[in-house]
Design a protein around this nucleic acid. Structure first.
Lengths: 192, 192
DNA sequence: AAGCTGATTTGACAAATGTCAAAACCAGTC
DNA sequence: GACTGGTTTTGACATTTGTCAAATCAGCTT
């Protein structure tokens, strides 16, 4: 496994094995909800006040550009879901976050997370590591967007997140790769 | 000013106004050097063991892809310079960092920074904020790469970092924008 | 099985960008 | 002022990707 994936494992392990006092406070502070497909965890232009942990289901982050939506991320069980800039700076979000299926999520507000981080070193550490992971994930994505052709980017995706291609509609994937639906369709025809 | 630039200001302010005890320890721990143009702060494949603060001069981060270099960042006075993944995980770097001119830099090793962060809340805060800034900067860059045409990306750059276009050779800028030198040249001819 | 609806594929053509080679430009040097 | 090496621009043409319209496919409903 590469360093990036190890890091992901590491913070997920830490989150799962949160020791007792921290765990208890965390459980008490967060809010578990079963939300329907299509639910907005954050709307574009609104301040993202919570971070969600996906227990089941899936979500996507996208930006509304005029009339078209451009997807920038897809999230799955175990992932922390939030609009990074909006959440950490508490400023309006540049993108929206929407559930792609009915999902079980655990919600934590900005203020609560701040308190938990200040109280428990372990929670602070998880927050830090997951942010580091996100940063490195972004670096990898830039790599792909900047250096690779559409065909290569699709191959990258297939390689890095094969499950994603099964579950996510092609129109979302196309915008995520920065190409049109038609081009993606042609790439797929060639490959297979 | 947008939230991103405010954040940048904020961590630079904090760094400049580091209170006495922390400042003294920091000064003692770091290493000031005047390094020549072309000097490698980190080579591709090596572990990046230090973070540099640029006092004067400039640097660029690039990736060697076969025979061609693709630039991924340009750094100027006041910026912290390191290979994020390599430094924070202490794993081999995917890219190289080279000085574009003779530069005065302040070097801090990984171990020393860890100690300083553990001892001084202020230094920890600066590290955190500068990482957050970097993350948001990456998000913006992805935005540009994923949504915008070559012409728009050049306009973005001109808008976000106008000084850069004066100081950096066009061949570096072209690869940074993910296009060829010739295409960049044609874009410039059209615009002006 | 027929009909509907949304997702995906295919076709024809246009626009953007890449490739390779040559020309022009520019700063420093003799 | 011409020479030189590196940078930038220009030209001709190839390739990739986008656009718009139509065809096909897949899953549901009746």
């Amino acid at each position: 496994m590469n360093p990036l994936q190890e890091l992901r494992q590491r913070y997920k392990q830490l989150a799962k094995n949160l020791p007792h006092p921290a765990r208890q406070d965390y459980e008490a502070a967060c809010q578990r909800e079963l939300l329907p497909k299509g639910y907005y965890l954050c709307r574009q232009g609104a301040i993202c006040r919570q971070v969600a942990t996906l227990e089941s289901g899936s979500a996507r982050v996208f930006h509304l550009k005029g009339t078209t939506e451009v997807s920038t991320a897809f999230l799955f069980p175990g992932d922390f879901v939030t609009s990074f800039q909006s959440f950490y700076l508490q400023v309006p979000s540049q993108s929206a976050i929407q559930l792609m299926e009915e999902s079980q999520v655990t919600l934590l507000s900005y203020q609560t997370l701040q308190k938990l981080k200040a109280t428990y070193r372990e929670i602070d550490e998880i927050d830090r590591l997951s942010n580091d992971y996100y940063t490195m994930w972004l670096e990898e994505r830039i790599f792909s967007l900047q250096f690779h052709s559409a065909t290569e980017r699709y191959a990258d995706l297939l390689h890095n997140e094969p499950h994603l291609v099964q579950k996510v509609p092609l129109s979302y994937i196309a915008s995520y790769l920065g190409i049109t639906l038609e081009t993606l369709s042609r790439i797929r025809a060639k490959v297979s």
